[in-house]
């Protein structure tokens, strides 16, 4: 963009905030690394099954065959003799899906409650915040176990249970943003031209409150994946859906004799959560001008 360009002089603020954030983000080495890692994991999960085909439930070799000893099962087999590499590939989808679904549930509940509380204030705020606090003080793992126990284990129940447990943080964050933004001039302007509450909340405040919420949601994906692994570890997972947590849960009793059925899905979970966290931190830096100086 040349200095002499009249358009640039006329509108010196033409760089959109998103574009600016992207500029910051792509200079952030850990964030870029995390993004690439996450993309690699997603590609691995999405396309891996086309390259390395096979039913993850099929018993293909002797149980607990160590990795590297048998060419047909490069990562070895689990306690039933099922191929661990197939399990990793097939189990990645549900694992990531539960993480994403739980994050979306968190966002939906959190934004609805937090937004209403922050926008209207007063007794509505008091009431909704007491409800939020109630959910916040419940021991998260126990509460999730109760939810799953009530509606027998399945992938959907697991996602709902995690979402229901993790939303209060998002609600509080949303409320804080709405409280701040509703006092700004452009909101007053919108109100003065006769916009209704719903429109103001949805079209005016929410887009401006989104950046911190996106950061929070990204980090929630990581937390949800870990949470799901924990629930599987306790045996509260759908046994019909292969997931990394399930692989760990069913094989952990043999860890002293066979480390590999537990270790490989463990590494997969670690890498995924690590990548998601790097992305989340990168987004946080990018959207928050105060942190950019670091």
């Amino acid at each position: 963009m040349g200095v002499a360009d009249p358009a640039a002089i006329a509108t010196p603020e033409a760089i959109s905030p998103l574009r600016e954030a992207w500029t910051v983000y792509r200079r952030n080495v850990p964030a870029v690394f995390g993004t690439l890692l996450l993309v690699a994991i997603i590609l691995f999960v999405l396309y891996g099954t086309f390259i390395y085909k096979g039913d993850p439930y099929e018993i293909v070799w002797a149980p607990q065959t160590p990795p590297g000893t048998e060419a047909t099962v490069p990562l070895g087999t689990d306690n039933l003799g099922r191929d661990i590499l197939r399990g990793l590939l097939k189990g990645g989808g549900p694992t990531l899906a539960v993480g994403a679904a739980a994050a979306i549930i968190t966002l939906v509940i959190g934004i609805s409650l937090g937004g209403v509380a922050g926008y209207f204030g007063g007794w509505i705020d008091d009431l909704l915040m007491r409800v939020t606090e109630f959910f916040q003080v419940l021991p998260a793992l126990l509460f999730a176990m109760v939810v799953i126990t009530l509606f027998s284990p399945s992938t959907i129940t697991t996602a709902i249970a995690i979402g229901v447990v993790l939303w209060p943080q998002t609600a509080r964050l949303t409320r804080a943003e709405f409280l701040k933004i509703r006092e700004l001039e452009y909101v007053t302007a919108a109100r003065s031209i006769g916009a209704r509450n719903g429109r103001i909340m949805w079209k005016v405040i929410l887009p401006n409150a989104l950046p911190p919420l996106i950061v929070s949601a990204t980090l929630t994906v990581g937390v949800a994946i870990l949470f799901q692994a924990g629930l599987s570890f306790l045996g509260l997972d759908d046994p019909n859906t292969m997931s990394w947590g399930l692989m760990i849960g069913t094989n952990r009793q043999y860890i002293l004799d066979a480390w590999w059925p537990v270790t490989f899905p463990g590494i997969a979970i670690f890498l995924t959560v690590f990548a998601v966290s790097l992305v989340g931190d990168g987004l946080n830096d990018a959207f928050n001008p105060k942190l950019r100086e670091r």
Binding site: Y57, E58, I59, N79, L80, R82, G235, P239, N240, T250
Partner: peptide
């Protein structure tokens, strides 16, 4: 119990 049930699914 559970491992045998899983085995039945495969078998």
């Amino acid at each position: 119990q559970e491992s045998v049930a899983q085995y039945l699914k495969s078998q």
